[in-house]
C-alpha cells in the first residue's frame, strides 16, 4: 500500500507522535502542580487555560494533522471558532448589561 518514501515519512511521524505524547504527559502534571500555586482565582484560570490550550494545539496540530492539513478544513475551523466566540460573547453582553458593568 505504501511506497518506500511514504514508509520513511510515516516513521518520522511516529517519532513526532511519541514526543508529543511525552509533552502532553508532562503538561498534564504541570497543570496539576500549577493548581497548588498560591495565586488569585483569575490568575489560576488564566494559567490553566493557557496550558490546556497548548495541549489542545499539540493534539490538533500533530495527532489530527492540522499542521499540514488542506485549507478547506482550516477555513471550516476558523468559521467555527468565529461562531463559537459569537455564541460566547452575545450572552456576555446581555449579562454585563444586566449587572450594569
Amino acid at each position: 500500500m505504501s511506497s518506500d518514501h511514504d514508509i520513511s515519512s510515516i516513521q518520522d511521524h511516529i517519532r513526532v507522535y511519541l514526543m508529543v505524547f511525552g509533552a502532553l504527559a508532562v503538561l498534564t502534571i504541570v497543570t496539576v502542580l500549577a493548581s497548588y500555586l498560591e495565586i488569585s482565582t483569575s490568575e489560576g484560570i488564566f494559567l490553566a487555560l493557557i496550558i490546556a490550550s497548548i495541549k489542545a494545539s499539540l493534539v490538533a496540530g500533530y495527532f489530527m494533522h492540522l499542521i499540514s492539513e488542506r485549507n478547506t478544513i482550516i477555513w471550516i475551523l476558523l468559521l467555527t471558532v468565529m461562531f463559537f466566540f459569537v455564541m460566547l460573547f452575545l450572552p456576555l453582553i446581555s449579562y454585563t448589561d444586566q449587572v450594569h458593568i
Binding site: 498534564t28 497543570t31 496539576v32 493548581s35 482565582t41 489560576g44 484560570i45 490553566a48 487555560l49 496550558i51 490546556a52 495541549k55 489542545a56 493534539v59 490538533a60 495527532f63 489530527m64
Partner: peptide, 22 residues
Amino acid sequence: LGLYWHFVDLVWIFLFPVLYLL
C-alpha cells in the same frame, strides 16, 4: 475514527482543569 477520538481527548483536556482544578 482517529480524528473523532482525538477530538474527544481534546474536550477532556479542557474539562479536566475547568471542573477539577479551578
